[in-house]
Amino acid sequence: MLEQMLFEFFIAIGTIAFAISGAFKAIRHEFDVLGLLVLGFATALGGGLIRDVMLHRTPTAFIDNGPAAYALAGCVIVLVSHWLSKKVWGLADPESRTFLVLDAVGLAAFTVIGASAGAEAGLNVFGIIMLAALTGVGGGMIRDLLAGETPLVLKSDFYATATIIGAVVFFILSYLSIDPVTNSAVTFAVTLLLRLSAIQFKWQLPRPK
């Protein structure tokens, strides 16, 4: 019961956070309301769609009403906030701390969801890591491509790295037979802490020159 509640919490917080980040970017590019919804939904649901297709199953968003409802809630939050205060435009800046933190929360939550799905499907460590990474960064990549930008994962230091490390932690804890609730909570915390630390301290990976 607790495991299911925690899993639903991660779905809700990750979907809403990514929908808000997508809506922020739509505002920055001066998209209309439909464009905002498209970008918000693509960001929130894109990673999950990629994950489910790779697992050869009907996407969860096409069966369960929850993800779409959470995505809509995130978009509505941004729309209402923007109409009440034009300051929201500033939060849409890709360098805005609010934008980056929301994206980090979504990344951490979806890392847990992707890794859990991989483990349940019986994938090996490589499969779990790949599924966690695609679930975590897939929606953001679609968002940036639709907005005509280089995907954040390709230029932001320690972005995909955070989700990869989080997935490795998930696999190790699973291998050690740690209970799923503790495993999920630790994986979320590690991924989020790594990404927030990267933002705060401007961690960078070596770049070929």
Score class of each variant (00 low, 15 high):
L2P: 15
E3D: 15
Q4W: 11
F9Y: 15
A12M: 10
I13D: 02
G14V: 00
I20N: 00
S21A: 01
G22H: 00
H29P: 02
V33T: 12
L34Y: 15
L45R: 02
G47C: 00
G48Y: 01
L49S: 14
I50E: 07
R51K: 06
H56E: 13
R57S: 09
T58Q: 08
A61G: 03
A61S: 13
I63K: 06
N65Y: 09
G66N: 12
Y70T: 11
A73H: 06
V76K: 02
I77K: 03
V78W: 02
V78Q: 03
V80P: 12
L84F: 14
S85W: 14
W89F: 10
W89L: 09
G90C: 08
L91Q: 11
D93F: 02
E95P: 04
S96F: 05
V105C: 08
L107C: 01
G114F: 02
G114H: 03
A121I: 13
L123F: 12
V125Q: 07
G127D: 08
I128P: 08
I128A: 05
I129W: 11
M130I: 13
A132C: 08
L134D: 12
R143W: 00
R143D: 00
E149R: 05
P151D: 09
S156V: 12
F158Q: 02
F158I: 13
A160F: 09
A160K: 08
V168R: 03
V168Q: 07
V168A: 13
V169L: 05
V169E: 09
F171N: 11
I172H: 05
Y175P: 05
Y175C: 05
L176V: 14
N183Y: 07
N183F: 05
S184V: 06
F188E: 08
V190I: 15
V190T: 12
T191Q: 06
T191N: 06
L193V: 11
L196N: 06
L196I: 10
I199Y: 07
I199A: 06
I199Q: 07
Q200G: 13
F201C: 14
K202H: 15
W203F: 10
P208F: 14
P208A: 15
